[in-house]
Design a protein around this nucleic acid. Structure first.
Lengths: 194, 194
DNA sequence: TAAAAATACATACTGACTGTTGGTAACATA
DNA sequence: TATGTTACCAACAGTCAGTATGTATTTTTA
């Protein structure tokens, strides 16, 4: 048990990660409201003092979890996207959506990102996070499809938001109905073709 | 100050309504989490004892507010629907959606129904409420459109859910972009036509 | 390298809030 | 009018979020 010597950066990152990991587990399992900081800190192996040293309050920790979850989500989707060879812009939208749905087959992720986050994080801040991750890709996809003339010429941001809403709702569907949802989404998107 | 004599039913309904009215105001203004029962009871002109006599807990009161809000919403939409003369099933969907968006131009209503309710009320119970109100109408509309052969033959429930998601997202849009959202929704629905 | 400063954490405390309990007042029933 | 039932109130108990103050560890400075 030597090697007790750690740089501040290491200590810092270590406990931050432990806190975020424990928080992600508990928020995913019990939801934001039912998660209490004593249990959370204990699960992370630190005291509440450490939590409040690193995060302003419970909500700030939740925001950190949401950011990380968004980043992981984007990672999974991009990985799936690169496996595909370049299809047309409409197919790209549909396949991107499928990748999103696949990455959303995790009830904790759904709970955090789709159920709790909108209620806990104020609108503007959450929009900003969304804009940096998933929605950015979707926006580019829609923009490309419109510019290529592959789909009807519609305001890009609203259309991207609406497609996002479709995928979010489908992600919350019972898994045995997912196929039907995907079929309906495909029909909706294909219906936009020029 | 006579006429202090009330039947139990009157007392009961009186304080229940006072509580629900005060709760609707505070939930709408501050959100569920930031609403506390001492202030709520005071605003209703009763004590917390009365609140907990009529409702099991804070969440039960919130559920009562959500039910009432859904009922009012359905009322507004039906009123708008009866003003229209019978159009085709696709137009009916679009106009029903417009009525929904109009009825949703109330930030408190959005906060309660679209932001807080999904986080506070467990999925099954909220689905049940939804099914009894707004979604029921939408489901009928989609079913009619499919049966009439006006739109593509797709699984009805998933499609209704997806259209519902579209309108929910549009309802949360900045009001100056509402026109663009409506245009995009129209295009999406029209794209389903056979 | 010793002293000083800054950073990371721990412990203890405070105020607030939720749900409960045991009682009182108002109405209903026999 | 007596008894039961329903509506309501006041005080209490437990929990939790956030804070304040103290200590240990690493970094900087003299």
């Amino acid at each position: 048990m030597q090697e007790g010597r750690k740089t501040q950066e290491e200590r810092r990152e270590g406990t931050r990660r432990a806190l975020i990991a424990a928080a992600r587990r508990q928020f995913a399992e019990n939801g934001y409201a039912a998660t209490n900081t004593p249990a959370l800190a204990a699960a992370a192996g630190v005291t509440r003092g450490a939590l409040y040293h690193h995060f302003a309050d419970k909500q700030a920790l939740f925001e950190a979890v949401v950011e990380e979850e968004h980043a992981l989500l984007a990672l999974a989707i991009n990985a799936a996207a690169e496996a595909e060879d370049e299809p047309g812009p409409v197919r790209a939208l549909i396949e991107g959506g499928d990748a999103y749905l696949a990455a959303m087959q995790d009830s904790g992720r759904r709970r955090i990102l789709l159920i709790d986050a909108p209620a806990v994080i104020e609108r503007e801040k959450l929009d900003a996070i969304n804009a940096r991750f998933g929605l950015k890709t979707l926006l580019e996809g829609v923009g490309a499809a419109v510019e290529a003339g592959a789909i009807r010429d519609l305001p890009v941001m609203p259309l991207a938001q609406l497609l996002d809403a479709l995928f979010d709702r489908a992600a919350l569907a019972p898994s045995d109905e997912l196929g039907d949802y995907r079929k309906a989404i495909k029909a909706l998107i294909r219906g936009l073709k020029t």
